[in-house]
């Protein structure tokens, strides 16, 4: 028994020391980075849904501000209506909920290259609802050339491609400012407290009143940022509402079935004299 005690106390001591060291190190690391402010998003939680009005406003912000530089290549104009739910024929709105006519009108504002036609030539035609979102640049190199060599990333998956994406993008859009004294800002870069390294090529996109909301909502920076993050969160995960709905049903079913299995198991155990 002595040996056992020696080994266990030695082991415990070693692990405690290691854990303590790691925690100290961790605390030091966290001091350097400002923690991300958590926002209360409507799509968080088990019953979370997107805010339909915010999605429409957010689309407007994307269209009138972000789309000057950022593509949204994984979305089609048809997605702007009700989303496609999980069950067949379930068209309950999970997208911004624009009507078919509105979607047609939005799509028709853009030109897509099609062809070749009967003469073997490529031609331009107005976009249709089935077309993907038309990006601002013909290709990545054109985008770089127009933006001082940096490529404005596609926004389709932005919220899922960053840790705590919604909070991060919200912070990024609202935390532009002047560099604190002593901060070496490279020529052509902008100071942003939320961006890793604090130097970002994108100039401040939202200043307040960048768009005029049709529903009369006041277009403050915070409001615009909130709306466009809602829109981008939906763009990244359009099936979130269907997922949340189905999840409740599946879990309810499984809990009942598992309970039945448990009761059945206990009875058989009793019958066999096991417990």
């Amino acid at each position: 028994m002595r040996i056992r005690h020696v080994i266990s106390s030695l082991g415990l001591l070693a692990w405690a020391g290691l854990a303590g060291g790691l925690m100290l190190d961790r605390a030091a690391a966290e001091e350097a980075a400002k923690p991300l402010a958590r926002q209360d998003w409507s799509f968080n939680g088990m019953q979370g849904t997107y805010d339909r009005a915010a999605l429409q406003r957010g689309f407007q912000v994307y269209k009138e501000v972000c789309a000057t530089c950022h593509s949204l290549s994984l979305l089609s104009y048809r997605n702007l209506g009700g989303g496609k739910g999980f069950a067949a024929g379930d068209e309950s709105a999970s997208g911004p909920g624009f009507s078919e006519a509105e979607i047609k009108a939005i799509a028709a504002e853009y030109k897509v290259k099609d062809g070749p036609n009967d003469q073997g030539e490529m031609f331009e035609r107005p976009a249709r609802p089935s077309d993907r979102f038309v990006g601002p640049f013909a290709n990545d190199n054109a985008a770089r050339a127009a933006n001082n060599g940096s490529l404005p990333p596609d926004l389709s998956l932005m919220i899922k491609a960053r840790a705590n994406g919604a909070d991060y993008v919200y912070a990024l859009l609202t935390e532009y400012g002047d560099a604190p004294g002593g901060f070496q800002l490279t020529e052509g870069m902008n100071y942003n407290a939320a961006f890793p390294g604090h130097q970002i090529a994108m100039p401040q996109p939202l200043h307040g009143d960048d768009v005029k909301y049709a529903d009369g909502t006041k277009a403050t920076i915070e409001q615009e940022a909130h709306d466009v993050v809602q829109f981008l969160a939906w763009a990244a995960e359009p099936n979130l509402e269907a997922r949340h709905r189905l999840g409740i049903e599946v879990l309810g079913f499984l809990v009942i079935l598992t309970g039945l299995f448990f009761v059945l198991k206990r009875r058989i155990a009793k019958r066999l004299g096991l417990h």
């Binding site: 491609a161 997922r243 999840g247 879990l251 499984l254 079935l257 598992t258 448990f262 059945l264 198991k265």
Partner: peptide, 29 residues
């Protein structure tokens, strides 16, 4: 089967409510 039921509940919670919790955001780039 009872164990499977418990396992399926854990599985469902992951799939429906935290599907990307175990993944890396970078893989969406």
């Amino acid at each position: 089967l009872f164990s499977l039921g418990v396992f399926a509940i854990v599985f469902a919670v992951l799939v429906f409510y935290m599907p990307n919790a175990l993944g890396e955001p970078d893989n969406y780039k």
